[in-house]
Design a protein around this nucleic acid. Sequence first.
DNA 1: CGAGGTTTTGAGGCGAGTCAAGGCGTGTGG
DNA 2: CCACACGCCTTGACTCGCCTCAAAACCTCG
Lengths: 231, 231
Amino acid sequence: MLFDATTKDTFLNIFEGAPERLLRPGEMLIHAGSEAEQVYNILDGTLMVSRIGNDGRRQVLSFLFPDNFIGLTTERYFFSVQAVTKARIVARPRVMLEARLSEDPEAGRAFLNMVYRVLENSMDLIYSLGQRTAVERVAVFLLYLRNRHRVALDLADDSPELKTVALPMSRQDIADFLGLKKETVSRSFTQLDDRGLISRPDNAHAVINDLNGLRKLAGIQDFSSPLRAQV
Amino acid sequence: MLFDATTKDTFLNIFEGAPERLLRPGEMLIHAGSEAEQVYNILDGTLMVSRIGNDGRRQVLSFLFPDNFIGLTTERYFFSVQAVTKARIVARPRVMLEARLSEDPEAGRAFLNMVYRVLENSMDLIYSLGQRTAVERVAVFLLYLRNRHRVALDLADDSPELKTVALPMSRQDIADFLGLKKETVSRSFTQLDDRGLISRPDNAHAVINDLNGLRKLAGIQDFSSPLRAQV
DNA sequence: CGAGGTTTTGAGGCGAGTCAAGGCGTGTGG
DNA sequence: CCACACGCCTTGACTCGCCTCAAAACCTCG
């Protein structure tokens, strides 16, 4: 859930009336190392934040969805951003954001809260990569997507709309996010299916049959933190 | 390098004249889930940020050193902080920080920059955990400590003081940081030693004999980003 | 309907984990 | 000042989970 900005944060109003841009699937929006002159907000579609080593290894840092903010850096981007699906975004010069943040303490606070959420999510990912097994990682991944969907549409936790989670990204993308190989991701899905926790109508969707079972497997309600009541 | 605040950031002046507190090795400063009423700055010693699953698995998120800031959250802490060595810290109410940040845009900017550095470092860790092998992780870990030392003392990259890096934390702590088991950490150190990259005068120190070799192994100068010229 | 790409499944290998023993360093008490 | 005990680190032998390489199944789209 890196880089998100839920509940229509105040600072997002800088994007009102901003110029739109369309991205085709796979199109690069930001190359790591480039100057961070623009910041963006997503209107529609799924994007992907990643970092690529010079030997070709790729780590996906986050998936981005509508209303997510892109631009968490100063000067230069230290990550790349790429469209997963066809996407629609709006752009503003970074200076406009900065002006807004320093003139309005309320916007500054909202922005900082958004950054804290990003940080917390990156810690969740660190925990997954460092401590969880392959199946567990895939289980939390599904819950993570479910939760993204939930907050984006502002739904109740038991809303029937959340039974199905969309998987717009490839197995390779998921693998690079979870620190696994695509074959292992595939096998883990199969295993969750065999255990009766999910079913798969097609490659781009997973249906959650046993939410509590998934949560138990994922070890959610962890971290002895009342904050993270559910994911 | 999570949670650091190098180059004496402006906002740190809230800690001038703040009450000191001493921590014994192993002492808890923050329990995950507790209210974030205070923020801290480290004067002396090494601390450790971690998250613990309810099955006992522990992920160390970051090590903290003098001048590092502690308190990146709103409301409640979603991580624990614990002393590694004997440590001296100063504390201020979080509201004092918030007042400072909203009244002085310059402090706000400095604070945000610090948070961006923390984010960038957590991405480095994510890359390590997701993509690197055991020896590679240990190699970057040594370079990471070296760099912490370098910025803390404001030394040149080739300063002879940086030949030796201190390892105040246990092998278990390192293992939980790098997503490995302590035996694997130990074997990786041995391997770096055998390859002639480092030598180990004692358990709490490593001497870097071949900096370029270590960097090459770590795949630093990665991410096609001019920013990260060296670590 | 066929071609190319993606996903799944299978067989075998390897890197890191597990379990266990031995070494080393530190601190304490004789 | 030495002896011993305790905790931590290292090393060894073996296991297992994920990776690698390869083939088959499935989708998508011309």
